[in-house]
């Protein structure tokens, strides 16, 4: 029972309180790049949830059962990035062959997040915070969920403000960044939950 409570705490902390994009600045490239329309943003979010949950489970297993027994913890960065890159490729091939509907929904986005810093960041955070495999996977899922929430909100705001009359120099990226900053202020409010 205590463990369920702990997992719930991780879920809330990683998805809302220390949101992966808005307070840790990981995965900023897709956050700013693929947030023009809600539809594509949701697709990207789904792919990120899928990849991060899977990769944090696999990276956790490799760390627990391979690196720790061999006393090679210092190899974590190299091993994680190669495992994640290979895993995403493999998942893409698997989905293409066996789960066509899921591939059609997520396929375009998979190669784009192969070496996204959020994926590697979650794997490294799990090691740093000494999460076990289950807690690590939950943390991965929660982080990705946070990314999903943030990118969909941003896409919604961008759709609404696309034709607003901004000064010429602020159009485009600066306005997106200001929006993201205001969202970050709003997300600071979740710190109370801690």
């Amino acid at each position: 029972m205590i463990q369920v409570k702990e997992l719930l705490a991780i879920l809330i902390a990683s998805s809302l309180v220390s949101n992966v994009v808005l307070s840790q600045f990981l995965g900023l490239c897709p956050f700013l790049g693929v947030s023009k329309k809600i539809k594509t943003a949701a697709g990207m979010g789904g792919a990120v949830v899928f990849v991060i949950t899977l990769s944090s489970a696999v990276a956790g297993c490799i760390y627990q059962y391979l690196l720790v027994p061999m006393n090679m913890e210092y190899m974590q960065t190299i091993v994680f990035i190669l495992v994640i890159a290979a895993l995403v490729q493999f998942v893409e091939m698997f989905l293409k062959k066996f789960v066509d509907s899921l591939y059609k929904a997520l396929g375009v986005y998979l190669p784009l997040i192969t070496t996204n810093c959020a994926v590697l960041g979650v794997a490294l955070t799990n090691v740093q915070k000494e999460y076990g495999i289950l807690a690590g996977t939950v943390n991965g899922f929660a982080t990705a969920l946070g990314f999903c929430i943030a990118i969909i909100i941003l896409a919604g705001i961008r759709e609404k403000t696309e034709y607003n009359d901004f000064p010429e120099a602020v159009k485009g990226m600066p306005m997106v960044l200001i929006t993201a900053g205001l969202m970050a202020i709003a997300f600071c409010g979740f710190a109370v939950l801690n």
Binding site: K171, L177, I178, A184
Partner: peptide, 22 residues
């Protein structure tokens, strides 16, 4: 110093860059 400030500073940089470009 907190997270939102980073976004605002970068937004300012981007805006200056846009201005120079225009």
């Amino acid at each position: 110093k907190m997270a939102p400030g980073a976004f605002f500073v970068l937004a300012l940089l981007c805006a200056i860059q846009n201005k120079i470009k225009i």
